[in-house]
Structure formats: C-alpha cells, structure tokens
Simulated scan of single mutants.
Amino acid sequence: MENNGKTPTSLQLVLQKLGGKSSIMRDTLDRLQERGIKSSKSTLYQAIAGRTHRQELVEVFLELAEEEFERRRQVEERARQLIDKD
C-alpha cells in the first residue's frame, strides 16, 4: 500500500505488518457498524493513508490491530511452550 509515492503512514505500516490475508479491514468495518458508525472500505483506506481525519475509524482500526498482534503473540508463546515440553 503506497501513499502516492510518499513514505507510508504509520497506519499503512501497521496494515502491511498484519499482512495481505488479514481480515482487519472487514473486521474494522463490522465493529464500526456494531457501534453505529457508518463507513466504507474506501473511507477506511483514506483514513489509514492520512487523507481523512475520522478519528473513530482510526481508533477502531488500531484497537483491532492491537488485538490481532496480541493474539499472534499468544499463539507464538503457546507454540513455544509446546515445543519446550518434555
């Protein structure tokens, strides 16, 4: 995800780190809808690129990204524990 040839925003880097197969965008839109906030995938991408300043979109995106990174950390830890078991 490029930012028109510019350096990617911090949020774009988070999205890249989550990977292309991540469901973060769909999950973000779902959570926004649950909270009664209407948005589109395009608007969400614009917020991540820094072209719109809808803080509620950014907050929910970061909330879900943090949850995903924590889930991945826990999976890695559980796998390490299983490997270390005798």
Rank of each mutant, 00 (worst) to 15 (best):
L32A: 02
K85M: 14
L32I: 04
R54K: 13
Q74L: 13
S10N: 15
V58T: 10
I24N: 07
V75Y: 12
E63G: 05
R73W: 07
Q81M: 15
Q12W: 09
G50K: 13
L44Y: 03
R26W: 00
V60H: 06
I83N: 09
L15G: 01
Q16I: 02
S10T: 10
H53W: 00
A65G: 12
E66Q: 08
E2D: 12
L64R: 11
K41Q: 05
L18G: 01
L11S: 07
F69H: 04
E63T: 03
V75D: 12
E70V: 08
V60T: 05
Q12C: 12
T9C: 11
R73E: 12
Q46G: 06
Q12H: 13
G20W: 12
L44R: 02
V75C: 10
G19M: 15
S22N: 13
K17Y: 07
R35A: 12
T9D: 10
Q74A: 06
S22Y: 06
V60D: 01
R31I: 04
T9I: 08
D27V: 00
F61C: 02
A79H: 08
R51M: 00
L18W: 03
E66N: 05
E63V: 03
E77Q: 05
E63Q: 13
L11Y: 11
G20I: 08
L15S: 04
V58I: 15
L62E: 11
I83R: 14
Q81S: 12
A49W: 03
G5Y: 14
L18D: 00
F69P: 01
T43I: 13
G20L: 15
Q74N: 08
I37G: 10
R78Y: 02
S40T: 15
L44V: 03
R31F: 08
E63Y: 10
L13D: 12
R78G: 03
T7D: 12
Q12S: 10
R54F: 05
E70R: 13
N3G: 06
T52Y: 00
T43S: 11
K38R: 11
S40I: 06
Q12P: 03
E66K: 06
L57I: 00
G50E: 13
G36E: 01
A47D: 01
Q33Y: 02
E63W: 11
L15K: 07
Q46E: 08
R71I: 04
H53C: 06
V75I: 14
E77P: 00
T9M: 14
A79S: 10
M25D: 01
L15H: 04
S10Q: 15
G20D: 11
T28V: 01
S39I: 03
V58Y: 10
V14S: 07
E70Y: 15
A65F: 10
S23D: 09
E63C: 11
K21T: 10
G20C: 14
E67R: 13
R31W: 09
Q55G: 02
N4Q: 09
I24L: 15
Q81H: 14
D84Y: 13
L15E: 03
Q46D: 09
G36V: 04
E59L: 11
S10G: 15
T9A: 14
T7K: 15
S39V: 02
L29C: 02
E66V: 05
R51I: 05
G5F: 13
Q33D: 00
N3A: 11
S22G: 12
S23V: 00
G36H: 06
E76I: 04
Q55E: 06
E2L: 08
R78T: 04
L29N: 01
E76H: 08
M25P: 02
